[in-house]
């Protein structure tokens, strides 16, 4: 069922050696390649037929869902709408991600729109990795959208990673955080050559004592560019922090625009942002432990994107 390219893509995107354990839905070139449900997790194609609905029963703990997407057909631009309903008090891991294998001159793209309804007390870890490989020259385009609606006392941790090969990426993250809920987002992006990546984030701390921490780590090599925008709005007593760091190498360009909006007197919002080259004192330290310049740069970047 899986060819060599599929296997390579699955490995890079989802860390999978073959078919995953537990519930999964593998989509390849706009079509269903395989699906498995569990007693607590159902996966169904939505009414419009343009995506899936993943329904996680209340109280489901220690289960995972894999929903990788493989794209290896020249000229295909695949759009998918997926909905996740995460039941009360559940604790699950969702591994998403898209891998493009480009073998020709035509561009290939995937737009994944993921909507999350996180019920009270639920805990979700969402891991999304984007990669593009292959010897083709066509542009590889990934435009992910995530919309997260959190009820009370829920916790969502999102790890969004794109470490190479993608020519164009336009990300949009939207979240509304309910009372006592916590949203942690870590975005790591590395671009090179003439690639561009853009990330827009609209986050609302809507409920009393909601919390968020938004971390962005960018490494911008070659002639690539990355832009990061985040609007953090507080409409209740809450706590929010944004931390954006960009390392520029070669002729990379970066814009980092964090915005804080407090619409409530008890909102506590902070941000830190930095753009710059690799710090000299970090290089000196690693070189004084025996690494040559290039190895030192690699280790610093590795740690930074961890």
């Amino acid at each position: 069922m899986l060819n060599a390219i599929d296997k390579q893509v699955l490995k890079e995107v989802a860390g999978l050696e073959g078919i995953p354990k537990g519930a999964y839905n593998i989509r390849k070139n706009g079509k269903l390649l395989g699906r498995e449900v569990s007693a607590n997790i159902t996966i169904e194609t939505n009414e419009k037929g343009d995506g899936i609905i993943i329904d996680i029963k209340p109280g489901t703990v220690n289960e995972s869902v894999h929903i990788p997407v493989i794209l290896s057909q020249a000229g295909l631009h695949d759009t998918v709408h997926n909905t996740f309903i995460v039941g009360e008090g559940s604790d699950v891991t969702i591994i998403a991600g898209c891998g493009i294998h480009c073998g020709g001159k035509e561009s290939e793209g995937h737009s994944g729109i993921h909507e999350f309804q996180i019920k009270a007390g639920a805990k979700v870890k969402y891991v999304e990795k984007h990669i593009a490989i292959g010897e083709g020259t066509g542009r590889r385009i990934l435009n992910p959208t995530t919309k997260v609606f959190m009820a009370e006392n829920a916790q969502v941790e999102m790890e969004l990673t794109q470490l190479g090969g993608v020519d164009e990426a336009r990300r949009f993250n939207e979240a509304k955080i309910g009372a006592g809920s916590v949203l942690l987002i870590t975005e790591r992006v590395m671009t090179d050559g003439n690639q561009m990546a853009e990330s827009r984030n609209e986050i609302e701390l809507a409920g009393t004592d909601s919390k968020t921490n938004i971390v962005s780590r960018s490494v911008i090599k070659g002639n690539s560019s990355q832009d990061f925008y985040v609007n953090l709005t507080a409409s209740a007593r809450c706590y929010g922090h944004i931390e954006c760091d960009a390392i520029i190498m070669d002729n990379g360009r970066n814009q980092t625009v964090p915005a804080l909006r407090a619409l409530h007197p008890d909102a506590e919002l902070t941000h830190e942002a930095s753009i710059g080259k690799i710090a000299n004192d970090q290089l000196m330290k690693l070189m004084s432990l025996g690494l040559d310049y290039d190895a030192a740069v690699n280790r610093i970047i590795q740690g930074f994107l961890r």
Binding site: Q282, K285, L289, L291, D292, Y293, A296, I300
Partner: peptide
Amino acid sequence: LAIHERSNVGIVYGFQHPARFKGTT
């Protein structure tokens, strides 16, 4: 000799103000 070459012949310096990294442990 460059810094790493001196290090690899056996000279190591502990900084007065050690570098602080991001992510590196």
